[in-house]
Design a protein around this nucleic acid. Structure first.
Lengths: 252, 252
DNA sequence: CGAGATCTTGACTAGGGTCAATCAATGTGG
DNA sequence: CCACATTGATTGACCCTAGTCAAGATCTCG
């Protein structure tokens, strides 16, 4: 048993939160920060590959991903899996579960993850006692739906090359916002080609070949779990990726 | 100019709302109903084919679809279009626009539509003054995201036949909930095969052939803008459509 | 009746799926 | 340090689902 915190674990107090120093999130009053910290019931560490939410589990909790990568997914009975979106540090997860009956989706950790878990069944009290936070939560829900919208356009109407270019750009830009790009311009990129295939609605083999093509064109470099974009402009053009003006998001 | 209201127009008062009599929505106190009616700024009729929201328009309004069909969509520059989800009576539309910067999507009327339009820029005041409604709006947002999740699984991982079976079942069940099934078991089904193709990520021709096959198998009948399911059980099996326990939704 | 939509079909093509083998990187136990 | 198992990346061969092109058939509607 080691008393020192691993570097990616949730800090004991929200005011020490690394994410709030990234300029990606709306600043909050100290009082609100205290409320959020009170709303937080616990922290949790989930190892790579572990389930944050089981696909058919009701009543799971709501939480914010503090560090690590995860993804939401749905599967068909014969095993076909669709990744709905990737979850990166700062993302709120599990809002849908709070409302019960909604379509089942699982959440799985790609890497080791640290989470801030919120109190169970207290979402309504948040809205009642702190309408501003309720408003923020709704904003986040709408924002996440926007990501799923994008992914649906990608899976439904882009070809394999465009899909991969989209995925690379999209994730890179999101990582950029939370300061996860290293000085050399590379980012940790822990997903494998099966994840990409499942996110894009492609087969593993075709994902490999299309990704290979992009690499050979000199558009990116992906090795040893690190991604570097060598020609982001070209990737954006291929994917028709439009960077929306970065706007501050709420962080719970 | 005719002073009598067309049959599908929004009634002047929410207490006369047809939708609230359908048992699909959570009952509300009379006082809350008055608040909702006050929040409603106007009603609007949009003709078939008209735009409820332009694809790149910011600051559009939020509204509830009272009658008619519409759909949310995104397009690529060369014209490829993806329908994100269909909007049926009772659906809340445009929440994302309220939050600005979000990914652009258009909303287009399939049939003539009647809408209850809410006051602009007053969403925050709803949360502040009526947290319960804020909570309900969030519920609806999460619910709509659930539909998009389903559609992403469909577009990404189901084959053409499964996609069509899914679409038919999904829309039929939704119409059922708002009492739009006729006594003979048929429903008005105003979308054409291009709409279906764009919703499912298929080409028009392949949509036609796959749909034809389902009809020839005796699973459904679709003609003159009316749909009747002849073998819903088989369609559910093909699509792996799981009817979730119908639960009441909020209605604004 | 003519002009558009929309729906159908057939013929052909191609993007992407399936199968299978190989290779590289890591890890494990002995 | 090595035999062996496991996971992930890569490639080639082949096939099939779904896309494209094109021509009719229906149906509306002014």
């Amino acid at each position: 048993m080691n008393a020192t915190l691993p570097p990616n674990a949730c800090p004991p107090h929200c005011r020490e939160c690394r994410l709030r120093r990234t300029r990606a999130f709306t600043p909050v009053e100290p009082g609100v920060l205290d409320f959020i910290e009170g709303f937080r019931a616990s922290t949790l560490a989930v190892p790579a590959g572990g389930a944050l939410v089981h696909e058919n589990q009701a009543n799971s909790r709501m939480f914010t991903l503090y560090s690590g990568w995860a993804f939401r997914y749905k599967t068909l009975s014969d095993g076909r899996r669709q990744i709905l979106n990737f979850l990166l540090p700062g993302d709120l997860v599990g809002l849908q579960q709070e409302f019960g009956d909604l379509s089942a989706h699982g959440v799985e950790a790609v890497t080791d993850c640290a989470l801030c878990v919120f109190q169970n069944d207290s979402l309504w009290s948040v809205f009642r006692e702190h309408p501003r936070l309720g408003y923020d939560i709704t904003w986040l829900a709408a924002h996440e739906e926007g990501h799923v919208d994008d992914n649906l356009l990608t899976a439904g109407r882009r070809n394999a090359t465009e899909r991969l270019a989209m995925l690379l750009m999209h994730l890179y830009r999101r990582l950029e916002r939370v300061d996860l790009v290293e000085a050399d311009g590379s980012v940790a990129f822990p997903i494998n080609q099966q994840h990409m295939a499942d996110a894009l609605g492609l087969s593993l083999v075709h994902t490999n070949k299309s990704l290979r093509r992009l690499a050979q064109l000199g558009l990116h470099e992906l090795a040893n779990g690190r991604l570097r974009l060598l020609n982001p402009h070209a990737l954006e053009r291929i994917a028709e990726y439009y960077d929306r003006p970065p706007r501050l998001l709420p962080l719970l």
